[in-house]
Design a protein around this nucleic acid. Structure first.
Lengths: 175, 175
DNA sequence: CACCTCGGTTCATTGATTGAACTAACGGAG
DNA sequence: CTCCGTTAGTTCAATCAATGAACCGAGGTG
């Protein structure tokens, strides 16, 4: 994508959001973060993204306060990227976009289903749980493969881990 | 943005959506369509987008069934671009992204406020009207300038028309 | 007939993305 | 101590997309 400055468009709110999130790969990285991906290498393996681009995007997301970079081990010092409160606030947007894509563009339907754990019900396009009628925050959701999952077939550690139901935001164990 | 094919990522639903909508300018064009912009020249004036890019994006949106291209006058034959049912389905995603941007990235807050006309209440980030508790479809919304509107100051016909409250999806009169 | 409008297309320049190769810090095996 | 493997990056040439200015064409209008 070109320059971020040029989005001097009108609805600054949306334009500002898109300057950050509208760049190629960025929203897929954020989605992976919701799924529990935290490590550089896992993002890399799951997204097939060029290393340089991943580094740039992670940095931008950290700068914007969407992700936090924090050490997960000393010696050798290694860092992981976790969603901040601000980052978790992107859930409604991500859910709505994914829902729309699943309904209109994915030939086999959505690849992931989001279930409100307390109710056992799938959330709708607004992120609301039809059972309890309230907005379902991501930490109360379970991610599970849907009808359109895994085509074409992938075999990286993240894809394998995501074949099992998994609580959103919990770190993904990629042994 | 580069290739759309490469988004062979996992969550096909979101990836498919982003192949179309994740390209620079595309979501801003769709947002303008919600505001009632329909003509090539109006998109051009309001977005400061290169003509070639606008033509490409409009074509892609028509191909994807998000916009419909239809004549609004004969002799000289001229066309306008209107949101289809599928396109109007993007409202929750657009609202969520704009809401997030207004909350976290826009220094003066949102530039546009969306009011549920039957209730006179602003919708929340999920697109739900807090007064009636139901999802507010875009055709029941009014767009109005918000606290962060119009900075920097713009003076094209669309910006001027949007300074007055306006029912969403209704064509914008840009005399 | 000259000129204006609207909706594009064309094209050289600029800038971003890509993917392969390289770097760096450290742990562990032999 | 040396070599190898792991993780997380950086560098760089080649490629691909965005930009913006100029051009085009079908109709009006004066």
């Amino acid at each position: 994508m070109a320059l971020g400055k040029d989005y001097e468009a009108q609805d600054c709110a949306l334009a500002r959001a898109l300057e950050l999130l509208g760049e190629r790969w960025t929203l897929l990285i954020v989605r992976d973060a919701f799924y529990g991906v935290r490590r550089y290498g896992d993002f890399l393996a799951h997204l097939d993204i060029p290393r340089a681009v991943l580094a740039t995007r992670l940095q931008a997301l950290v700068d914007a306060g969407v992700l936090a970079r924090r050490p997960y081990q000393e010696s050798p010092r290694r860092h992981e990227y976790v969603l901040t409160e601000r980052g978790r606030g992107l859930w409604p947007a991500l859910n709505a976009l994914g829902h729309w894509g699943g309904e209109h563009l994915a030939p086999f339907g959505p690849c992931r289903l989001y279930t409100h754990l307390p109710c056992g019900t799938r959330v709708d396009r607004t992120g609301t749980c039809p059972a309890c009628g309230r907005f379902a925050p991501p930490e109360e959701l379970e991610v599970r493969p849907g009808p359109g999952a895994d085509r074409p077939h992938r075999d990286d550690a993240v894809s394998r881990a995501l074949r099992r139901p998994h609580r959103m935001l919990e770190p993904l164990l990629t042994e």
